[in-house]
């Protein structure tokens, strides 16, 4: 197929593609673009706050782990006579804390 023949076929296809259907409203696209710009600017402005929140969470988690490791014997002695009920209560507290953190850090 030479180039003139290809141009004829493609012209026929292009004519079929002009179905006259309604195109999206340009005003809608313009305002969507402006909205995305504002959201991007807001995200840039609040980024330091989000970073600080994650850093504080990491510091709290590391501190908790270090303290637990340093006082593991005492914790074991405390929990040994308690039995299953205290372990279940402790697990429930951890789960609730996780849900609370998720709520705090979600946008």
């Amino acid at each position: 197929m030479n180039e003139p023949e290809a141009a004829v076929w493609m012209g026929r296809l292009a004519a079929l593609s002009r179905d006259g259907g309604a195109l999206p409203n340009p005003a809608l696209i313009w305002w969507k673009a402006r909205l995305f710009e504002k959201q991007a600017a807001q995200a840039r402005a609040t980024r330091p706050i989000a970073i600080a929140q994650w850093v504080s969470l990491a510091v709290a988690a590391v501190t908790t782990i270090v303290l637990c490791m340093a006082n593991w014997r005492s914790i074991q002695d405390l929990l040994a006579p308690a039995g299953l009920a205290l372990w279940v209560a402790g697990a429930a507290c951890v789960i609730l804390m996780g849900m609370a953190l998720r709520f705090v850090f979600s946008d």
Binding site: S17, R18, L23, P26, A27, W30
Partner: peptide, 21 residues
């Protein structure tokens, strides 16, 4: 916005055909 609207009306029909095919 006016320039964009004019640009859109000029280019969108052909571009829509290109994307569709």
């Amino acid at each position: 916005q006016n320039e964009f609207t004019a640009f859109y009306h000029e280019t969108a029909p052909a571009l829509h055909g290109y994307i569709r095919r």
